[in-house]
Design a protein around this nucleic acid. Structure first.
Length: 495
RNA sequence: GCCCCCGUCGUCUAGCCUGGCCAAGGACACCGCCCUUUCACGGCGGCGACACGAGUUCAAAUCUCGUCGGGGGUACCA
């Protein structure tokens, strides 16, 4: 065993020093999800770090479930993340390659035709389960007589092709999980070609890894059990093995694997783009799921990730997808952007909401964004934060009204008084700039012994309908004198 | 059922390989205080974990075994 470990290590450094070739192999059966994005990122980082090649391979041998639309969606998501590929392959276009290797396996006796029907297989499975067997297929078609074959063929049965699991231990080396030996009794003669002639994942995957000269297979641990099967096929075909690195799964908050089927949009990368997340934040977030650099750094630029990422520092246990942390990172990256860039990012959201009518001046928009300041967690937040700048069609939030305008007649009267006075003051001031407005309002509150917060909040609700948001004086100036007076009128009528 | 993997604060993790520096550090979240025209931001503080049990050892989060717990796979899906 000591010898083997040594050899593995040698192998490893050799390959790292040589040309690194890695691949991401999504199946186009839906959108790219967070876990897939992480697999892509880890592969991509590893390739870039070693000046290697990152290959995108579309594993679409399941014609029934694969769609062009989802293939496109995966491309879009990867492009948005900035994960660019150097080579691209589509498995459904490579049938002849797989067929050639299947013939080779058949000819060399490493594989055989199986004529069992679905019903028969189901029966075998039930039986072996009852018998607590480690296998669910017994290999009964390994030695079919030519008579039987003839009979099956005449019945119109279309055979599958199965790989013969050899009778010896299979050694699996994994860069993250370590090495182990697999008892062949726990493996069974897997179907490698369907009865419709289309090869299966375990065949195409390892054949392509060899054909494409993949040096490191970095993929999720859901494939851990496939690895010995693929090693068997590779060995039968005389391939050199790539190095395997199985990264732990991304989990939901109940500890289950994130999947398109169970989690839907929550895990769709493209959905995060639409909601106003930054690719830098998504990348940073996903990189830290299972990987860490040290006990200090949380924020990593893409360049830093390329430099610092290390498979040896990827943990063995699964990580829960915590959107709160993603949000924190996103607001961090948004705040790194200058006002102009933030404005660019936010305009599509205003447009989508129908708030822009092309009369707004860029400068005014930028001032709004500036006033909003660090209050954005996602760009989508710009809508509730700034809606009232574009329309006076907003509701007065009941909770805010109750607190700052008051529920009793007495309190309402006092709020009405304040708003009326404020309106008068704002009408009278000579210029409508920040300093003038601010000092006039404070002069009024301080001289009349009115709490600043009470006056400000009463006016804020009048102008925005809510009790939170940017500095009130910014809002007042941005809205302009006419609009402010008009809105106070409206508030007075509603109070 | 069977096979495989995993197990440090609620979450992401540092520490584990090379036992003592760990009465376990950081970050997110949460709570409180400060700042403050609101909400955020920021500053300060708080809460909070080595799954359990044996063993080895002068010494165990770190090594060994067992138990328990969680997850993945078990298809003519990938």
């Amino acid at each position: 065993m000591g010898k083997d470990t040594e050899r593995t290590k040698m192998n490893e450094s050799q390959k790292t020093d040589e040309q690194v070739r890695v691949r991401m192999a999504p199946s186009p059966t839906g959108f790219l999800h967070v876990g897939g994005a992480r697999t892509a990122l880890f592969n991509w980082l590893f390739a870039r770090q070693h000046n290697g090649t990152f290959i995108l391979r579309i594993d679409d041998t399941d014609a029934a479930r694969s769609t062009d639309a989802s293939m496109q969606e995966i491309f879009d998501a990867l492009k948005w993340l900035g994960i660019n590929w150097d080579e691209k392959y589509v498995q459904s276009e490579r049938r002849n390659i797989y067929d050639r290797y299947v013939s080779q396996l058949l000819d060399s006796g490493h594989a055989y035709y199986c004529y069992c029907t679905q019903e028969e297989l189901e029966e075998i499975r039930t039986e072996s389960r009852k018998a607590k067997s480690t296998r669910s297929y017994d290999g009964r078609c390994r030695e079919l007589s030519s008579d039987m074959v003839e009979r099956y063929v005449s019945e119109g049965r279309k055979p599958t092709v199965r790989i013969k699991i050899p009778d010896r231990q299979i050694r699996v080396d994994d860069m993250i999980l370590g090495s182990r030996n697999i008892d062949p009794l726990t493996l069974e003669d897997e179907v490698i070609v369907r009865s419709n002639g289309m090869p299966n994942y375990n065949l195409t995957s390892i054949v392509d890894d060899a054909e494409m000269q993949i040096t490191h297979v970095i993929r999720g641990t859901e494939h851990l059990n496939n690895t010995p099967k693929q090693i068997v096929i590779a060995t039968a075909l005389g391939f050199n093995l790539p190095l395997f690195a199985h990264i732990p799964l991304v989990l939901d908050d109940t500890g289950r694997k994130l999947s398109k089927r169970h989690h839907g949009d929550l895990v769709a990368v493209n959905r995060y783009r639409e909601q106003g997340y930054l690719p830098e934040a998504m990348l940073n977030f996903v990189a830290r799921l299972g990987w860490s650099y040290d006990d200090k750094q949380e924020i990593f630029s893409v360049d830093e990730l390329v430099e610092k990422f290390d498979l040896a520092r990827v943990g063995k246990s699964g990580s829960v997808f915590d959107i709160k942390k993603l949000e924190w990172l996103n607001s961090h990256y948004i705040n790194q952007l200058d006002v102009s860039a933030r404005t660019d990012a936010v305009i599509p959201f205003w447009q989508q909401e129908g708030l822009l009518d092309a009369t707004e001046e860029r400068d005014w928009l930028e001032r709004i964004v500036d006033a909003v300041g660090e209050r954005l967690t996602t760009f989508q937040d710009i809508i509730p934060q700034t809606r009232y700048f574009f329309t006076d069609d907003y509701e007065y939030e009941p909770k805010a009204v109750k607190k700052w305008w008051g529920s009793s007649d007495e309190k309402k009267q006092s709020a009405r008084e304040i708003l009326t006075n404020l309106q008068q003051i704002l009408t009278d001031i000579p210029t409508f700039d920040l300093e003038t407005v601010e000092s006039a309002v404070w002069k009024y509150t301080d001289e009349n012994d009115i709490k600043r917060v009470a006056a400000m909040q009463a006016m804020r609700i009048a102008l925005t309908g809510t009790s939170f948001g940017p500095s009130l004086f910014d809002i007042v100036v941005l809205l302009g004198k006419d609009e402010v007076l008009k809105r106070i009128d409206k508030a007075l009528a509603n109070l």
